[in-house]
Write a protein that binds this DNA or RNA. Structure first.
Lengths: 232, 232
DNA sequence: AAGGTAGGTGTACGCCGTACACCCGTCAAG
DNA sequence: CTTGACGGGTGTACGGCGTACACCTACCTT
């Protein structure tokens, strides 16, 4: 059994590794067996490769987890044009939910990674940005969108809460984005951040009163329940 | 420096271990350094004891995590009597939030443990039960409470979502509670469960339409936002 | 032909959870 | 007073984990 590369061999012994192949193997492994069953060694084994080979494609396990989150976010349907904000948001959230149900480990990983990172990955940022865009296009003021994002909270995936939290004392982002590119790629996030904190440098800084936002969302919910109650 | 037990020594060399001491040491360690920095070995070291000593007080690390959750739930203020349901719920939720802010690792642990266990620990059950009780006392019908619990969702700690999910294929609960005791200790949960599924045996079984509940909560939120928008 | 580089390999280290055998102080029964 | 059970702390050891580091080997460029 010669397994070394042989020129004319019709069935090549192994496809070449790549970040995508590593990530989808990882996602597949997590789907069956949960995130506890996910180890670099198991992923390598599933790919027929030695564990350290993975490190040529992902820096470490945390980056791998971040990459997996991006894969998941990519599974969420893009925003549907030609509808009012309400159905657009509704569809998007329900699509996100379907993704979360497909990958039961997702919320756990998202939760823990969002706590650790200074900034969400670009894919996540893009998702949030387009979400904000839908609200803005629907006529929401910047302030109201801000509230809305907090209110949606965990239903928007579970991370908007953390997104707005103080980001100091976290793992420093290895390749933090310069503010100009930030503004160009995520216009809505930038707009919101500038309105919230009058300090455009700390783009998603802690210029917002978390406690106020929490109570705002809570009261909105309680009022909704009360209305239902009155209507008996 | 003789550290072995010596009869008349006024300062006894070490307090005797106990489950509470282990748990509070674990909570303290998690508070400073997050849940990743929490290992049986570190806890033991903090208590001046050999790692295996802990296993005389907790069965394994998962049970330790469950115990830690109970400690946290115990920090939530008990329900305030003599008020309407709305302020009672409000106070309770805000108290829970203060606890979560004190222990930033809490949501992560709760999230992962709730996914794994068949039934929440008694302390958690008690918390949920009293929460339901407040709604019921406020005049909510059983059905409406059911909706309400889903709506509050993560704001009620983050676990009611999982509580109502299908509980098959999870770690079997070592000491599952007999239904009678269940009904006696958690009357409100039982009432709700019986109404939802007409099968009183699978007390928090999957007799509820998760998708419906999710959309119900989503729409309640969206309607709330819409009202704010109209009032511009 | 020379040499850089991208990608897979092998070994090794320190951490983890915990199974298992042990040991010792206390206390009840004989 | 002896004995033996037992609750609780100990020591050793195993298998799995993430990953640092040195290597080797094809290939591509010049």
């Amino acid at each position: 059994m010669e397994t070394t590369t042989q020129a004319g061999s019709p069935a090549q012994p192994r496809a070449p590794l790549s970040k995508e192949r590593v990530l989808s193997a990882a996602v597949a492994l997590a789907d069956e067996g949960g995130v506890d069953a996910l180890s670099m060694r198991k992923i390598a084994q599933a790919l027929g490769v030695v564990p350290m080979a993975l490190y040529k494609h992902v820096a470490n396990k945390n980056e791998l987890l971040d990459g997996m989150i991006d894969v998941l976010v990519g599974e969420i349907d893009p925003p549907a044009g030609n509808t009012d904000w309400k159905t657009a948001i509704r569809r998007r959230v329900l699509s996100a939910r379907r993704m979360l149900l497909r990958h039961t480990w997702a919320t756990e990983v998202i939760e823990s990674r969002m706590k650790a990172r200074a900034t969400p990955t670009p894919a996540v940022m893009e998702y949030l940005d387009s979400m904000i865009g839908i609200f803005r296009a629907g006529g929401f003021s910047v302030d109201l969108v801000h509230h809305a994002m907090h209110v949606m909270g965990s239903r928007l995936l579970g991370f908007s809460q953390e997104l707005f939290e103080d980001s100091s004392g976290r793992e420093p982002d290895p390749d933090a984005m310069p503010p100009e590119e930030m503004a160009a790629r995520f216009p809505h996030i930038t707009e919101l951040a500038m309105a919230v904190a009058h300090d455009p440098d700390s783009v998603v800084g802690s210029g917002c009163d978390d406690q106020f936002e929490f109570e705002f969302a809570l009261d909105l919910t309680l009022d909704g329940l009360e209305r239902l109650l009155r209507r008996n």
